[in-house]
Structures are given as C-alpha cells and as structure tokens.
Amino acid sequence: MSYFKRGVIFITFFVACISVALLVASLGTKHWVEARAKRVKNPIESDGKIHFGLFNGKKDLNVAYGWRSYDIDVTYLVRYEPEFLMYGVWIGTVIAVCAGLFFSGLSAVFAAVNTATTTSRCLTSVSGLYFWNLSAVVCDVIAICLWTAQFYLNIQYSVLSREDKDNEWTSENMAELGYSFWFVAGAAVASFINIIIIFIANTEKEVDTVIPVLEEKTNGAIMLY
C-alpha cells in the first residue's frame, strides 16, 4: 500500500472518531426535544421550558409564582405513560443510534489497522471499510427517520406527563428537535464522507496498477527496435 493511500485511510480514522463522538454526545445529552409550555387557564402569566433526551431530561415550570425545576425520567414515562412516546419508535431509535456507534467504532479501529499494516481479509481490509461506514450511515439514517416520525406523530402535540396535563399544561405546537438529534445527522454525514474518502483511496490503487503495465509495453517496444 502506498504512502498516499495510508495517509488517506488515516484521515478516515479521525472522521470515524468524530462520528463516534457525535453519537456518544447524542446519547448522553438531554436535548433531543426542546419545547415551551403554557397553562390553558393563564397562558400569559404561566410559562414552561422542557427538554429531554432518549433517557432523561428536565422541565422548568412557572405558574406565575416563580420557576420550579423537575427531572424527567423518559424510560419511566415510556413504560407507564405510553402516550408520552411511542415505545416501539423510541426503542428503535435507541437501538439504531447504538448500532451506528458500534459500526463507527469498528470503522475507526479498522482504519487504524489498515494504516499500520496491509490485510487481505474482506471485512478488515480497506474495501471492508466501505461496509462499516455504510452500515453506520444506514443505522444513523434509521435513527433520524424514527425520531422524525416520533416528533410529527406524537411529540409536536405534547411532551408533558399526565400530571402536567391534568394541571392544564399544554405544549402543543411549541416543540422542536434539539441539538442532540442533529448530532446523529452530523454522524451520518461524517460516515458518508468516509465512504467518499475510501473511494478516493481505492482509485489511487487503480492508477498504480496501470502504470507498470504501460511501462512494460514501452520496454517491449524498445527491445524490438
């Protein structure tokens, strides 16, 4: 493997690490959803700020008597208040993000391996990097699609618990996708960029194989003269 190709493959290691970091951040941060809330009784005096991730979050509510903060346990609400989030879509999103993290991690590992040495095994070779990065892109896109469906089918209408709704709070049409969600989109873009970089690296290999053949034909013609 040429120095150019090793250098290009080494770049994919850093890009894969960026993808891993973005996916870890998406799982660890609490801003997949950001929303405001109002009380139906006194919408002018009341105000609420809500944000949560895949596992937990926080809400700040003001009933005109000052702000009060509460923790949100997403896993509890999904289990005991199924109207809060659709369970199948939520668990599918979690699995897809974790799978994307797994494949991005393998992409980084095998990029480092191919930078240090040459291997001919299918899934550990340079060509195998296509598979790991493509798998990461697919998982990330699945997560994006699932959470987008969750948002338009459920979240945009309410991000409140039963207790809050019983107290006449509403968040209808006041929610938006937070930056934790966009981390996954960034990870998908990073993995796709890696596919392009790997294609460039493999293109360089084809050039290397053509040059010796041309030189051999030239040398043969000289010998005839």
Rank of each mutant, 00 (worst) to 15 (best):
T12S: 08
L106V: 02
P82H: 07
T218Q: 15
V24S: 04
L85I: 13
A99E: 12
R68F: 10
S2H: 06
I200N: 00
Y80T: 12
N173Y: 14
T124M: 02
K205Q: 05
Y76E: 03
I91W: 09
F84H: 12
F10T: 07
E176A: 12
W90R: 03
R36Y: 04
V189N: 13
A201D: 15
E206C: 00
F131Y: 01
L85V: 11
Y87R: 13
H31Q: 03
S104H: 00
P82Q: 07
A190L: 11
Y80R: 11
T209Y: 08
N62H: 06
F4Y: 05
V141C: 06
N114D: 06
V20F: 07
G128I: 02
L177C: 15
H51E: 12
L224H: 12
E168D: 11
I95G: 00
M1S: 08
P43I: 00
A35F: 06
V15F: 06
F55C: 06
N202E: 15
S107T: 05
G53E: 15
D140H: 04
K58C: 06
G53N: 14
V94P: 04
A35N: 09
R68H: 09
L153R: 02
T75K: 02
G48H: 04
K165W: 03
I144N: 15
G105H: 00
A21C: 07
L177A: 08
A187H: 12
F13H: 03
K59L: 02
N202H: 10
